[in-house]
């Protein structure tokens, strides 16, 4: 898991929904081991507007092709510029960075919960769990049918349950309102999504004594523990979410 600064070549840029792009990037050399939940820091260009790198979760990894995928939602200048990248373009990445989701015990009943571009790390996590022969379900929440991201890919790996806020697909409401959570007794939840979703899922997990890990998206200066800008308040004081996170057990967080 040695970190490095490397140029990757863009081999594919696919628009999967309005404002969502999947970038596949390939490196000339073998990739280091990358764990689910880890992220990379991407240099956008030399524009004065996007001076700092931008953090993105690793969405998928293909060691045979030395390639990895990022799922990018347009949020501002940096992400728009990345969405316009063409095959052949070079991108500088620093990574792999951060910690990872833990591996569940064999007898755990595991649920992956994601929303918006927070589903990004869950694909690689799902593949990782599958390769370690762990069983799990996936629950995803979106605003409406038009915002649903790539759920076919996830379906290939496990059962996928959906909620949309307007009921245009799946159950109506937020993920925490899905009937699945009343039917199944999960012992472990992994969640990545908007803050409000992670807090609601965390609250549900706490009330039901479920082990729960969330992946935070704090603003980052460096991504490898030197600027101390990405801190999150925990029971152990302020810690860097880029080195001790981005994945945190909710028991540690002071929200």
């Amino acid at each position: 898991m040695t970190k490095s600064v490397r140029n990757f070549q863009l081999i594919d840029n696919k628009s999967i929904k309005k404002d969502f792009y999947v970038l596949e990037l390939s490196s000339g050399q073998p990739l280091p081991e990358i764990l689910p939940g880890q992220f990379v820091q991407v240099r956008v260009d030399d524009s004065k507007e996007t001076f700092l790198r931008r953090p993105f979760s690793v969405h998928d990894v293909d060691y045979t092709r030395n390639s990895l995928k990022l799922l990018i939602q347009i949020a501002g200048k940096g992400t728009s510029s990345l969405s316009e990248k063409k095959p052949g373009d070079l991108l500088s990445l620093v990574g792999p960075l951060g910690n990872s989701f833990s591996l569940p015990e064999n007898d755990d009943r595991t649920l992956l919960v994601g929303g918006g571009c927070g589903v990004a790390p869950l694909l690689y996590l799902a593949k990782y769990l599958k390769s370690h022969k762990r069983e799990f379900d996936i629950l995803m929440g979106f605003r409406n049918r038009d915002r649903i991201i790539e759920h076919e890919e996830y379906r290939a790996l496990s059962n996928v349950y959906l909620t949309t806020e307007d009921g245009s697909e799946g159950e109506i409401g937020f993920v925490t309102q899905h009937s699945l959570l009343r039917k199944e007794k999960y012992s472990r939840i992994y969640c990545c999504g908007p803050d409000a979703m992670m807090k609601a899922v965390g609250k549900f997990a706490n009330e039901n004594q479920i082990h729960c890990e969330v992946s935070l998206e704090n603003l980052m200066g460096c991504g490898f523990g030197v600027c101390l800008c990405c801190i999150v308040k925990t029971v152990d004081g302020n810690v860097c979410s880029c080195t001790e996170g981005p994945v945190f057990n909710i028991k540690r967080l002071i929200w």
Binding site: T50, F51, C227, V232
Partner: peptide, 16 residues
């Protein structure tokens, strides 16, 4: 240290 947020990107620089 100070509470989050502690950083802001600015043209050709950053505030911390």
């Amino acid at each position: 240290g100070n509470p989050y947020p502690r950083m802001a990107e600015t043209p050709s620089g950053m505030l911390n």
